[in-house]
């Protein structure tokens, strides 16, 4: 997903090299925040229940479409539309857990196949339902822009940085310093020990899916206004999230932040110096390189999971 703005003056070649460097510096950060906000929901669900929710891209786009329908077809104001979208996405997460995931719980491959299928199903359903043309976009929350070191940055992008950092901090606090957060992490570490002190594993996993989906919906509502709602965005988001989680080592907030920044700068640089089409190549190259050289991620560690009561 390419989210940097059209450059002022059209072609990159016209810009001075200083302006280009500043653009890369600033838009690297913006891209990093976008990537982080987009990936937080995935990382949360994985960290709290061990489910790699590959329906992520589908849920992201579905949330965008839901918000669009609430705003444009039902004419709701922005805030209620956003809240309802998040709640619906959360309920969908819990529903997917109770109806499908619960049955394959603990079988990592089956969990991935199930969520992947659901994600593709949602995206292709949206395509069938006609969300393919370029008529769909969400409104920005704050209009206007700012010039930093000669680079124009609109307020919505700054807001994305702020919200991304805020949500990351809140989630870290939630998972490390609240009773429910600790219980969920305990569950992810050792299900049977959690069960033997009275933590209900199904409830915990459903909650982590719901929370993950709510954060994805929030990310969609914040980020989609920067571009158009199209089916490809859903697929691109999935590649992006996989690149971040593989680079960042799946479950640490620090790893996620670092990976988002690296990919943010890598995509900003290739986008400005080469062509925005290189974004997907950057993500895929990151996945292949990390898996080949450091499969547990930049800051990651290996976890061995055994199952036996």
């Amino acid at each position: 997903m390419w989210v940097a703005p059209p450059l002022k003056g059209g072609s990159n070649k016209i810009m001075g090299s200083d302006a280009l460097i500043y653009s890369v510096l600033i838009y690297g950060l913006v891209n990093g925040a976008v990537i982080m906000l987009t990936s937080l929901g995935f990382s949360l669900t994985f960290g709290l229940s061990g489910v790699a929710n590959l329906a992520h891209g589908g849920i992201y786009l579905l949330s965008g479409c839901l918000a669009w329908i609430l705003l444009n077809t039902l004419g709701l104001p922005f805030l209620p539309a956003a809240v309802i979208t998040m709640v619906l996405a959360g309920l969908l997460g819990a529903g997917v857990y109770w109806l499908v995931l619960q049955r394959v719980r603990g079988l990592a491959l089956s969990e991935m196949i199930v969520t992947f299928t659901i994600g593709i199903g949602i995206l292709e359903f949206l395509r069938w339902a006609g969300f393919v043309t370029y008529d769909f976009n969400l409104p920005v929350i704050i209009k206007g822009s700012l010039t930093i070191a000669g680079v124009i940055v609109d307020y919505q992008r700054l807001l994305v940085i702020g919200v991304g950092v805020l949500i990351a901090v809140l989630l870290w606090f939630f998972s490390h310093h609240t009773k429910i957060g600790l219980a969920l992490r305990g569950m992810a570490q050792d299900e049977y020990t959690a069960l033997s002190v009275g933590i209900d594993s199904d409830w915990a996993a459903a909650l982590s899916m719901a929370l993950g989906h709510m954060i994805v919906a929030m990310a969609a509502i914040m980020i989609l206004p920067l571009g158009l709602i199209s089916i490809n965005v859903g697929y691109d988001v999935l590649t992006m999230v996989l690149a971040v989680t593989i680079l960042g080592g799946l479950e640490s907030t620090a790893g996620l932040t670092l990976a988002s920044l690296i990919l943010g700068y890598a995509t900003a640089a290739t986008g400005m110096y080469l062509n925005p089409q290189w974004t997907q190549v950057v993500y895929l190259a990151a996945i292949v390189l990390v898996l080949a050289l450091r499969p547990s991620g930049l800051l990651g560690k290996f976890k061995e999971l055994e199952e036996r009561v």
Binding site: K179, L182, A183, R185, G186, Q189, D190, Y192, T193, A194, S196, V197, G198, I199, V309
Partner: peptide, 29 residues
Amino acid sequence: VQKGIVLCRERHPIFRDNTVQENLQLGGY
């Protein structure tokens, strides 16, 4: 567990990523 039947499983399982204090808090969930 709610009724008071609590098992300490074989091979001393604990929550390895949490601190000692957090482990005990989780025990009292």
